[in-house]
């Protein structure tokens, strides 16, 4: 229980030496290591926060770019759709135009073919009619009928003498050979107009059907069955068009259907 004062003093010195050594070799290095690690961790946290902020900024930038791309995509799609719609309308317009042109050509071809068919039928019909009429008129043609024909023509000629000025070089065309008295009768009628009888020539025209035609340089007066046949031809054209329309074939207006371009009939035969 006694204190050895030398040991007491030595232990104080030993403790102070130990304190200094531990401060040098233990507390200092350990605290320094802890502080450095904490500083490194703090710096790593700061770096992580900076990287996170940078990443967030990058993300926002990329998001903006994505938004911009989405907007651009919408605009491009809208423009493409508009372009496609415009192109489609143009192609449709061209297709319609092509179809109209083709239909027009088809109608033209159809009209042409119809006209050719009509002309062909008319020709055949007229030929048949003419053959028939010629046959009938030929069978009925005799002196009396020719005389009646000449008489009728002379009366018509006398009615229209006022519109028939005097002229030289008159030619009388007939479907049959006129007898001398008949030539005399027509010549007398023409004399009343001041035409020199010696200048009247008589000719035969096979195209005239039971008819007589007087022609000067500028005027013509005729009476023949061709006018009736022309009326018959016009009527046949009308009947043919009606028959085609009723069968469902819609045809463009042919020149013969245009108002004011009617088929000439016997009543409208021209006296010019």
């Amino acid at each position: 229980m006694n204190i050895d004062w030398f040991t007491f003093a030595a232990q104080i010195i030993n403790f102070l030496i130990l304190l200094a050594l531990l401060k040098r070799f233990l507390y200092g290095p350990i605290l320094k290591a802890i502080a450095e690690r904490e500083a490194e961790i703090v710096s790593q946290f700061d770096a992580a926060r900076r990287e996170q902020a940078a990443a967030e900024a990058t993300r926002q930038d990329l998001q903006k770019q994505l938004d911009g791309l989405a907007t651009t995509k919408k605009q491009l799609l809208a423009e493409a759709a508009e372009e496609v719609e415009r192109w489609k309308q143009e192609r449709l317009g061209e297709a319609h135009a092509d179809v109209d042109a083709a239909r027009f050509d088809w109608f033209e071809t159809l009209d042409r073919e119809r006209e050719q068919l009509r002309s062909k039928l008319l020709t055949q019909y007229r030929q048949h009619a003419l053959q028939m009429a010629r046959g009938v008129l030929t069978c009925l043609a005799d002196v009396d009928s020719q005389k009646l024909l000449v008489d009728s023509f002379v009366r018509q000629l006398e009615e229209q003498l006022s519109a028939f000025p005097a002229s030289d070089g008159v030619t009388v065309w007939s479907a049959f050979k006129l007898a001398a008295d008949q030539q005399q009768q027509i010549g007398d009628a023409l004399t009343h107009t001041g035409i020199d009888r010696t200048g009247v020539a008589f000719r035969i025209d096979d195209s005239l059907i039971c008819g007589i035609k007087v022609r000067t340089r500028d005027h013509e007066i005729s009476w023949n069955a061709a006018d009736s046949l022309a009326f018959l031809e016009g009527q046949f054209s009308l009947d043919l068009n009606e028959a085609l329309s009723a069968s469902g074939v819609r045809l463009r207006d042919s020149p013969s259907n245009v108002p004011g371009n009617s088929v000439e009939t016997g009543e409208s035969r021209d006296v010019s």
Binding site: T7, A10, Q11, N14, L18, L22, L26
Partner: peptide
């Protein structure tokens, strides 16, 4: 004495370990 001797031992262990 033993006190000082073992004190040095303890000091040596602490310092050398550190």
């Amino acid at each position: 004495n033993a006190t000082i001797l073992w004190t040095w031992v303890v000091m040596a262990i602490l310092v050398l370990t550190s």
